[in-house]
Each structure stands twice: as C-alpha cells, then as structure tokens.
C-alpha cells in the first residue's frame, strides 16, 4: 500500500485539486478539503497543513483552526475498523455504560485509542439516530441495535 502522506507530509496534489473552489463562492472551503483528504487516506496529517494552506490559498492558522475544531477530523491514522459506541441519552438509559465496559475489556483499549495491532479504534458518539433500538454501536458503517454486553465478543470478532 502506498501512503499518500508519506513523503515529508506532502499530499498527492490531485487530492486537493477538486477542493480548492467551493461553488458558488470563490473562497476556499477548508472543511470540504479536509474531509476529502480524510476520505481518501483516513486522516489529515498535521504536517501537511502548510501544503493544504498553500493549495487552498488560506492561512495555515485557518487550516489548523478548522482541523482542530471538528471532532470527526482525525490527525492520526485510525485502525482498520472503527468501533463507535453511542453515549447519547437513549443509549445511556439503556445501559450503554455496560456496553462500553465490555468493549474496553475485550479490545484492551480506551476511548480514543487504537489497539497495538492497528485493527480497531474505539470512539464514542452522541446519538446515531438509532435510539428506538438502543443501545447502539457501529462498526465502520454498520449499525447494531439492542446490543447486549454478552454479544460484544461475537460482533467484534467477526471483523478480526
């Protein structure tokens, strides 16, 4: 696999080509550009901020500001699978704390961490709109509802 962010933090210029203009304005849309980069390589390497700023015609401070503001923008590579556990109120009412504990125990990592093999990243989220069948977890884009702590092992191990 070639890592597009490898050579001294420089991104493939095609990555940024589409993002430098945002119709109908001619000002750069920084968020759109950062999301596009993340979509392609999984995260936004902070060392590429100067290059992004230059390509977009924005200041480095502006790019860094947007990058740090949004929770979904990552600055490190995630594991191969991202597991998100919902901590929204309907899931709280339905004991998501137990689900979180089961996940932490099984994966051996805390929220915001990636396991040593780089397989799983554990994250929390506030509501996935799946409240009527809570508690909820998501593995990548797949949602699981009415999750019981005892199911965690089976669900996770399907992705190993």
């Amino acid at each position: 696999m070639t890592d597009e962010s490898s050579s001294e933090g420089l991104l493939d210029s095609s990555l940024l080509a589409d993002c430098s203009r945002s119709e109908p304005s001619d000002r750069p849309n920084i968020l759109k550009a950062l999301l596009a980069i993340q979509e392609r390589i999984g995260y936004v390497p902070p060392r590429s901020i100067p290059q992004i700023a230059r390509t977009l015609g924005a200041t480095e401070a502006d790019v860094a500001g947007v990058l740090s503001y949004y929770q979904d923008l990552r600055t490190t590579a995630p594991g191969r699978h991202v597991i998100r556990v919902c901590m929204g109120e309907s899931c709280v009412a339905n004991r998501c704390g137990q689900i979180l504990r089961a996940l932490k125990d099984h994966l051996g990592i805390d929220i915001g961490e990636t396991d040593s093999g780089g397989q799983f990243t554990l994250e929390k989220v506030f509501c996935m709109g799946n409240c009527a069948v809570s508690p909820t977890i998501a593995v990548n884009q797949t949602l699981f509802g009415r999750v019981e702590p005892a199911q965690i092992r089976t669900i996770v191990d399907c992705y190993r």
């Binding site: 945002s22 304005s25 000002r27 750069p28 849309n29 920084i30 968020l31 759109k32 550009a33 999301l35 502006d62 500001g65 947007v66 503001y69 949004y70 929770q71 979904d72 923008l73 989220v125 506030f126």
Partner: peptide, 23 residues
Amino acid sequence: MGAGSYVCGEETALLESLEGRRG
C-alpha cells in the same frame, strides 16, 4: 456532510460550517 459538531446544528454555526470554516 457535517463533521461531528453539535453546535453546527445552530443555524448560523451551520452556515459557517457550510462555508468551510469553524462552526
């Protein structure tokens, strides 16, 4: 698509975000 910020549901923060800035 948004990027995981609750306050971006507030209409003016949403517009900032739509323009690509901090919400």
